[in-house]
Structures are given as C-alpha cells and as structure tokens.
Design a protein around this nucleic acid. Structure first.
Lengths: 262, 262
DNA sequence: TTAATAGTGTCTGTCAGACACTATGGA
DNA sequence: TCCATAGTGTCTGACAGACACTATTAA
C-alpha cells in the first residue's frame, strides 16, 4: 500500500504533459438562430411573417479576413467549453440566458490555418432584440442576419462553418419536432396558430391540417400543452393576431417518449 | 485589393499561436457497449439471456492507478477526434467497423490532474467476441465487462467517467427506441422475439404486449422491417430459439420521422 | 359585409390495448 | 404430452385524415 503510494508519487513527478504535441486551442463557435417577425399588410389582423435566420459576423483579420463566420472565441483553462460558449453568447448578445446547447466537435486536420485547433460548435436560440443591442466585438467588423438558404448557398463562409451550420440546422429541425424547444421562439403564452407557424418556419415541410384538434384532444398528447387560465380559472385568450380570440397555451414539462416501435 | 493581401500576409506573419495557454491534450474515450448472450437451461429451446455490459480497463498508472476507466487515447495532430476514437476502437477490439458515434465533450476544469485535458467521449456497440481477442494495451492491466448497474453503483471510476457512462447509457436507450441501432446487436437475419429482447435488454421498461402485430401490420410502421425471403420468394424462418419456426426479418433503411405534434 | 383566423361536426378506415385462443415441433 | 415461443381472432374505444361547416370580431 505504501509502496503503491510511493510509486504513484514517482509516476506523477515524472509525468510531463508537454512531452507530446498538444492542440493550439479549443474555441467554441455558436450558431445563433433567431426567428424574425415581420408585420404583414392585410385588411384585418393577421399573423406576422416569421423567418428563421442565423447570425454571422464578417471577419476582419487573418485567416479568412472578409468572409462571414460564426461568432466564437477561445476557451480558457478555468472554464468548461460550455462555459466558454455561454460567455461568448453573453458577449455577443448582452443576454445571459436563452437556449444554448452543444452541437459537436469539429476537428478535421487543417481546418484552421492557425494550427491544430479543435472547435466546439454550439447552437443558441435567441430573440431578435437580443441581437440588436449587440456591440461590435474586437475581431468582427460587421454583423448580419441571413436565412439558412442565403448562408448556405450565397455566402462563402470561413473555416468549416458551412458544415457546422448544416449540422445545426438539422439538429434544430429534429428538436423542433421532438422536444418543446419551440418555446424558445414563443412568448410565455401563445396561441396554437403561433405555435404551428413557429414549427413551420423551422421545419418548412411540416404539415398537419388537424393540428389544433390533435394537440388539444388526443390522449397520447395530453399534457404537452396546458391552457392558460386567470386566477378565477377562466381560460385566457388573445385576439392579437386574429379577429376571433384564440385560446392561449403554455408548454408543460411533459415530453412524451417517442419510439419507432410502439 | 493588393493592399488587402499585404495586410493579410502581415497579420499571418505576426500571428503567434502559442501566445495563449493552450490545452494539454484532447483524448477520445470510448464507452464500449456489448450485449452478452448466455444460454438458458430449460426443457425446450428458448432465447438466451441477453445483458447489456460496458467494457472498462483497470488503470495501472497515475492518475487514478488501480481504478476502472474507459478505454481511450490521445488524439494526434494529423487525425480528427473521430479518427482517434476509431483508431482506439481498433486497438482495443482488433475490429475495424461496428457502430461508433460521438457522445460529447467533457471539459470541466480540474477533471484531469495531468493538466488541461479536454476529453471527447464516444460510444461504440461491439459484439462480445470482439472483446475476447483483445490484447492488453500498454496503459491497462485488466479488462472487465460490467453491467451498467455494477459500473455505476459498485465501482469507483477514474476521472469523470461515471458521468460519461450515465450520458452514454441515456443516449443508447434513446437511440434504441428512435433509430434502428438495434441491428448492431443482432445477426443480419433475426426473429421478432430476438428484436424485442434486444430492445428490452437496453431499455428495461420498454413493454409492448402487441409488439409482433404492431411491427408487422400497422401502416405507419411499414418499411422499418422486411421479411427475409429465399431466391424463390419463399419466406425464411428459423427455429433456433423456439419450437415453432419464426419468420426472419432484417432492417430496411427507412426510419420514420418522429414528432410529438403529429 | 367581409376578411382572416379559430375551432367543431362528422364520417370512414385504421390503430391501440386487452385477452383469449390456436400453431408448431422438439424434448 | 408438455413446454415455450410464434402468431391470430376479436372486441371496444381512440385516433387519423378528410372536408365541410360554424364562430368570432375588427376593419
């Protein structure tokens, strides 16, 4: 036992962490999604147009100066990668909170001309106003909001950021259908019309003509949504976007377990 | 334009990648799952007992000498993290192939006494025989197969490997129900009894009394499984595990899109 | 009155969940 | 004949998908 401890101390003393080639950095890059809202001009009240956008910044410095890139920054020794992403999100939006989730690691050799740099991608769902109060950071010159189509088809992006955006878009589409992430793009109380529109703006080929009925009155989906009621238990509704008032809902915590087998 | 290029070259020349503290390593650690098969002694033919196990190796060296840990190794500059995991899997099992998938990054400060080491976890689904032909690697002294319960409740694990195993178990349970990953634990042709048993051995609380009927004759699940037929189109069956022959199936490529809303 | 969204009636065929039942073939 | 798994018959209530219909309210 004592021998073991002495041996362990010896091993520890002889361990040299810099014996091998080590990475030159581990940044966190963030795909910041937002859902823009634009009024529509119609005769009567109507839902605004919602569009999924991704925030990019134009690089000022080598490498890839002049190209659009994901916001991000290097992780420090005293924080986790997630902590670095959170810090970065705060610096970019001025907002501490919102949905921030790990996406994956990007480590292809040669992906960064500065050296051996292993990047960790996150995606965030932020509200439009959070991006407005953003102040230009040191290594950026310009901020832009682009639709996914624009970002993937019209822009030449820095590094492997195109791959990252493709993966992030896939993941957010999956989560939009399988989790209650839609709440990140909705006010605390929302109508079913709004919810349906939010889903469709992220997953364009989602179609469900009986959406209202299914979500409100099938037993297998009971508990995903709850009606909003006032202190007297009277259902609350809103006619912000329609002539006829619509029932307001909010998400409960329940998320059903999905399976291909049952 | 020319000015820009000159400026870029100047920036490149002045860039010093070692100006900041950089990570001391980026290993890939692998949660290797296997499904053991043990014969049951009964009067007539019966399905074997299947049990989900995780492979661990006992560390011989500092840090955490003597504790059980996940197999893994450091990533090199000329490979991706996934490449490192693949190489490690090959070294541990001698098998090039099988299911290997990224799980996540573990980067909590202080997680590794050797320094600032950012670990990337993978999970693999391997067959039992692949682990048998394993030769002891340099930094390991002993190999063990443990049930998830044993690994999480009875063992003191190295590093944050307990967290990693918890996350991996969650992910494999989710995938068992939402993807066709079950095929990794099944022969190319299998019976529905085997499939049901494999699902249950990974997700113990999965119960579906009408399993056979649902998977074979509901339209919404058409195409996940296909009957195996011989060259004459005659259905193939097996009585390896039962007196009455059971139809053999294999997975097709189709995986239905799951959603909480429809 | 009309525009525009909210929400219901109703019908047909399919599915879920439950339980009992038959089928198979080697020990 | 019995065991142990494979697979079907059948019933009730719920759900899916479709389409037409009514409801609501401000412009």
């Amino acid at each position: 036992m004592d021998n073991n401890r002495i041996n362990e101390e010896a091993q520890k003393a002889s361990y040299n962490v810099k014996k091998y080639r080590t990475p030159d950095g581990a940044p966190a890059d963030i795909v910041m999604f937002t859902l823009t809202k634009r009024e529509r001009k119609t005769v009567t009240k109507t839902l605004p147009i919602r569009e999924l956008k991704v925030m990019l910044i134009k690089r000022r410095r080598w490498p890839f100066a002049g190209r659009w890139a994901l916001p991000g920054g290097f992780c420090q020794e005293d924080e986790s990668i997630y902590g670095a992403a959170k810090r970065e999100l705060l610096e970019e939006t001025g907002v501490d909170g919102g949905h921030l989730e790990y996406l994956g690691v990007y480590s292809g050799p040669g992906r960064d001309p500065r050296g051996w740099i292993i990047s960790h991608a996150f995606f965030a769902l932020v509200e439009e106003w959070m991006l407005e109060q953003r102040q230009a950071a040191d290594d950026a010159s310009e901020v832009g909001l682009f639709t996914i189509r624009e970002a993937l088809e019209e822009l030449e992006l820095a590094f492997d950021h195109r791959d990252i955006i493709v993966d992030a878009y896939r993941k957010i589409q999956l989560q939009m259908l399988q989790t209650t992430i839609a709440k990140q793009f909705l006010p605390p109380h929302f109508t079913l019309g709004e919810l349906y529109q939010v889903i469709q703006s992220v997953v364009p080929d989602f179609e469900e003509p009986n959406f209202i009925r299914k979500i409100t009155s099938t037993r297998s989906r009971q508990g995903i949504l709850e009606e909003v009621r006032d202190e007297n238990g009277k259902p609350l509704s809103s006619n912000q976007y329609s002539q006829r008032p619509a029932q307001l809902y909010h998400f409960s915590d329940r998320v059903p377990r999905l399976s291909i087998y049952t």
